[in-house]
């Protein structure tokens, strides 16, 4: 394992985060500490609130209570674009790309944002060399350069998932949230995706929702188990899979089926 021994700082810190939709309380006081530079998995049964947790962190939903800090600064209540600019990017459980733009353009939108060209109206984008080169670079890192000019909507499912991951890299965020990046993939596709995630998150902080324990084992430094809106335990993958409580609440359930 590649645990850092240097003084630990939190990239992401959640304190007593709660969320209810009307009467239904989905998040019941979540405390979570993601260290800078670690790869951290969130596991838990369906409906436990993993996606909701990501939606709260990334600003899609407002928290009902509690505090969320990114790199030591509170991002609670900020809109998604501000949170992104503070250094957090996310992917979505259901593929969320620009279907009618080319793969290249899908990535370039984010690169433009990173360079602060958000309202560029006075120069053709084709002449912006640094931006186009950086886009090509990300395109190569996610292995989509042969598909650069295809419409994103025409890609295969696993290519679209790779594009999703690529898009989280474009804005230069150092905290990456991936929501079930390997869901629905074949064994080989999953293996490729794991390698991709490993290489692109090198030197960054990763928080990912993952169902496949073998992916968690090979990729992540620590795991948090979310059950019915609270964190049951946070530890290394080995100790989590040996944890009685976790086995009963979650892993046992899976093993039984």
């Amino acid at each position: 394992m590649t645990r850092k021994t240097t003084p630990r700082t939190s990239a992401l810190q959640l304190t007593d985060v709660t969320k209810s939709f009307g009467e239904i309380s989905v998040m019941k006081g979540v405390n979570l500490d993601v260290e800078a530079g670690e790869r951290h998995a969130v596991i838990g049964p369906n409906g436990a609130g993993k996606s909701t947790l990501f939606n709260l962190i990334s600003g899609l939903f407002a928290v009902s209570g509690g505090d969320i800090c990114l790199n030591g600064r509170s991002i609670t209540g900020l809109p998604p674009h501000r949170i992104n600019r503070s250094g957090l990017a996310r992917s979505f459980q259901i593929t969320n790309i620009f279907h009618r733009l080319s793969v290249f353009e899908n990535l370039r939108i984010g690169v433009l944002a990173r360079h602060g060209v958000r309202f560029g109206l006075f120069q053709p984008v084709s002449r912006m060399r640094a931006i186009n080169e950086e886009t090509v670079d990300i395109l190569e890192r996610v292995g989509l350069e042969p598909r650069a000019d295809h419409l994103a909507g025409d890609l295969t499912y696993s290519e679209q998932r790779a594009l999703e991951i690529g898009m989280t890299l474009t804005t230069g965020a150092d905290v990456i949230l991936l929501d079930e990046p390997t869901a629905g993939m074949s064994r080989e596709e999953t293996a490729k995706a794991v390698e991709l995630i490993r290489s692109v998150t090198e030197g960054k902080t990763l928080l990912m929702v993952e169902h496949d324990m073998s992916v968690v084992f090979s990729l992540c430094d620590r795991v948090s188990v979310l059950v019915y809106g609270s964190i049951l335990a946070t530890d290394t993958p080995e100790r989590i899979s040996a944890n009685r409580q976790v086995q009963e609440a979650y892993l046992g359930e899976e093993a039984a089926t």
Partner: peptide, 19 residues
């Protein structure tokens, strides 16, 4: 222009643009 391309992206998927 960059903003012209963003215009198309907004049509396609406004939520993603925010993130």
């Amino acid at each position: 222009t960059p903003f012209g391309r963003l215009t198309l992206a907004l049509r396609d998927n406004e939520q993603r643009v925010r993130f």
